[in-house]
């Protein structure tokens, strides 16, 4: 593509109250084009009632080479999961 376009990440909300889910991305030159392209690509089969588009450079993510430092320390701390409790009698649907 020529200069001027950028990538926008697309989020769709199925109905009011539910979380927005990431569904993919579109290319567009401006906000209006991004939201219209997202509508045409991701909601044409009644996938949702609300749409967000976010320019990809506005998203802050963990640099790939920092992934070990960010996430590995959680691996050996199984006690952080709430699995060490004895379920009281009478609780059937936990």
């Amino acid at each position: 593509m020529e200069k001027g376009d950028k990538v926008w990440e697309v989020f769709v909300q199925k109905k009011s109250g539910l979380p927005f889910k990431h569904v993919g991305s579109v290319r567009a030159y401006d906000k209006k084009m991004a939201i219209q392209n997202a509508r045409d690509l991701y909601t044409r089969r009644s996938e949702g009632r609300a749409l967000w588009v976010v320019p990809v450079e506005a998203i802050v993510s963990v640099p790939l080479d920092n992934a070990d430092a960010f996430f590995d320390p959680a691996d050996d701390k199984a006690y952080r999961h709430a699995t060490f409790y004895v379920t009281p009698e009478g609780v059937n649907h936990l």
Partner: peptide, 11 residues
């Protein structure tokens, strides 16, 4: 001219 517009026009 580009993929997204292709879908928009076809719609």
């Amino acid at each position: 001219p580009f993929l997204e517009e292709d879908i928009a026009i076809s719609n």
